[in-house]
């Protein structure tokens, strides 16, 4: 069918991906609060619409009507650009995500590398936002984000190299197809754990939300942001969570592969469970101290990731 109407699909797929993921990302606003409520023995937002589903609409509307304030002491242009960067990089990343074998915007042979490079660009958003706010808390938040993302970026890439070595391809469809026999979560369990932790840190989700630690930095890099700009950071974070979950589904949980149900549904189910695990993390774990976080990254996870790559490489070479 796609071959018959290439132009139609060339438009439809990006639109679907864009709207699908942005909607999913913003639905997370509601989903996270409900899940947190569930795990903390309370209700969460349940008043607006059925199950409080329209809370997202209410929140979005509120965000639209908030004063879009740029502090007089801020670096104005950078201040405006910063939130746009995170939205752009995350949304761009989605183009390489294959929801089903041919439902993908950009079928790149180096899809994984595109993802990695775009996700490291996301760091600029936080750093610039923190810098442009010209507020000591924001600056500290930005600095923390920079150090944290630099540190975790390194072994995030390395942790995935095991998967790449096993598959022999950077193309995500190939990686998924290679899991027909067994999901990568089995042989690459350590790689998965490391990537999961790195993903938490990349999206600065709790417990790695030190750049925006409200108790000491009063929301860190986005202290000065309000209205839609804040909304962009906010949704950017949720989109990041969705992106990371999708990537994990693709890389470790066999992507769209699964019996009976159509591929898209399998992809959706797996991603949702992973997203929920992000929320569970937030509901459970306290925030570590900042130096602990950095030390943990460089001294534990990086060597572990290298070791994982070494062992995987060794085994792959042995079987060749």
């Amino acid at each position: 069918m796609m071959a018959e109407y290439p132009l139609f699909f060339a438009v439809l797929i990006p639109v679907c991906i864009l709207f699908g993921f942005v909607t999913a990302g913003s639905m997370l606003i509601w989903a996270e609060r409900r899940l947190l409520g569930l795990w903390q023995l309370r209700y969460g937002p349940n008043r607006v619409g059925p199950f409080g589903l329209l809370q997202v609409v209410a929140d979005t509307l509120k965000m639209f009507f908030k004063e879009d304030w740029i502090p007089p002491f801020a670096d104005k242009s950078v201040f405006v650009i910063a939130p746009a960067i995170i939205m752009t990089t995350v949304l761009l990343s989605f183009m390489i995500v294959p929801v089903s074998p041919d439902f993908v915007v950009f079928d790149s042979s180096v899809g994984l590398l595109v993802f990695l490079s775009l996700s490291s660009l996301g760091a600029y958003s936080v750093v610039l936002g923190g810098w442009a706010s010209n507020n000591k808390y924001s600056l500290l938040g930005g600095l923390r984000a920079a150090a944290q993302m630099l540190g975790y970026e390194v072994f995030m890439g390395i942790s995935l190299m095991g998967v790449v070595a096993m598959t022999g391809s950077f193309r995500l469809q190939d990686i998924v197809e290679a899991q027909r026999g067994m999901w990568n979560i089995g042989p690459q369990f350590i790689g998965f754990i490391i990537f999961y932790i790195a993903a938490l840190a990349e999206t600065h989700r709790s417990p790695f939300d030190l750049p925006e630690a409200e108790s000491e930095l009063v929301a860190g890099f986005h202290s000065e942001y309000s209205g839609l700009k804040f909304g962009m950071f906010f949704v950017g974070e949720y989109l990041g969570v969705t992106l990371m979950s999708s990537m994990m589904t693709l890389l470790f949980f066999g992507g769209w592969l699964g019996p009976v149900l159509p591929p898209v549904v399998w992809f959706f189910i797996k991603t949702t469970i992973l997203i929920s695990s992000f929320v569970l993390m937030r509901a459970t774990l306290p925030r570590p101290r900042y130096d602990q976080l950095i030390v943990y990254g460089w001294r534990v996870l990086l060597p572990l990731a290298l070791l994982n790559l070494l062992v995987t490489g060794g085994i792959v070479l042995m079987f060749q």
Partner: peptide
Amino acid sequence: GLWIVFKHGFRKRET
């Protein structure tokens, strides 16, 4: 901890 919190999902709500 994660397991305990997850189990909370099936308990009666306090509020």
